[in-house]
Simulated assay, not measured.
Amino acid sequence: MAHEASYRIQDEPAPSGLGHLIVNPVFPLLSVMLAGAWLALPWFAFNSFALGSPTRRKELLLVVAAPLGMMALSFGLGLLYVLLDLPKGSLPYFQVLLVVWKLAVAYWLFDLQKRSFALHEYFGGPVRNGLPVMAAGFLLKGVVLKAFGGSGWWQMVAS
């Protein structure tokens, strides 16, 4: 019985059955800004699997770390607010830190996926237009955030 040797470059994307659904990672990045993390983070994870990204584990870890980091940051900042008896005017600055966290993680995910996407696109792989999904997410943002309940905290994590 002959064994076929297979050669695979480590940073080369592995083929996936979902390859026909790959989008440019700029769409999930923009969707975190326009629709929210509720759409962008699962979309980054799905795109990672569809691309067969060699950094998939790191990307999935970041997808999980994003909301956990938001929760930890908001808890820590709330504790700081109470312990230091900060003025109410300081709360918007805390919200800016939370937005910066979300955007930083989203950009990191984009940066990890853009290399695999560039190889996929260079070798003629199919690429879907992510604009309709992003636009639908933008239009449904209010409905989705209401589903997270009245808590402004949960809405901030999902937005």
Rank of each mutant, 00 (worst) to 15 (best):
N129A: 08
D11C: 05
W38R: 01
V82W: 06
P25C: 08
S31H: 09
P126C: 05
V96F: 07
A104K: 04
A2G: 04
P92F: 13
A35G: 13
R56P: 00
E4G: 03
R8L: 07
V100A: 15
V144N: 05
F138L: 15
L51G: 00
S53W: 00
N129I: 08
A72S: 14
L73Y: 03
M156C: 00
A50H: 04
V26I: 15
V127W: 03
V127N: 06
A14M: 09
L91I: 15
L61I: 08
A37Y: 01
A158Q: 07
E12Y: 13
N129V: 09
P28R: 05
L51Q: 01
V82R: 14
L62P: 01
L77N: 06
S16Q: 10
K114F: 00
L140Y: 08
F44L: 11
A37M: 09
P92G: 10
P132M: 11
G150M: 06
W101R: 00
E59D: 04
A2Y: 06
A2H: 14
V100R: 07
R56K: 14
N24R: 06
H120C: 04
A66T: 10
D111T: 08
A72R: 07
A50I: 08
G52K: 03
N24D: 15
P15A: 15
Y107A: 14
L18T: 02
A50G: 10
W43Y: 12
R56V: 11
L68F: 14
G125R: 09
S151L: 14
K102Q: 15
L29T: 10
R57A: 12
R128L: 13
N24E: 14
Q155F: 03
R57T: 13
A66P: 02
Y107L: 15
G78D: 14
R8V: 09
S116Y: 04
L145I: 10
S90Q: 07
P87A: 07
L73H: 06
G52A: 07
L30D: 06
L103T: 02
D11T: 11
M134T: 12
L39Q: 05
G137K: 11
G137P: 12
G52W: 02
L79P: 00
R8W: 08
V133K: 12
P92I: 09
F44N: 09
F94D: 01
F117V: 00
Y81E: 04
P87Y: 11
H120E: 02
H20V: 07
Y81V: 01
K88G: 03
S6W: 10
L61A: 13
S90L: 15
G19W: 01
N129T: 07
A136R: 14
S90C: 03
A45E: 03
P87V: 09
L60D: 06
Q155H: 03
P67M: 05
L60F: 12
L34Y: 11
G150S: 12
G125P: 12
G69R: 10
L83Q: 13
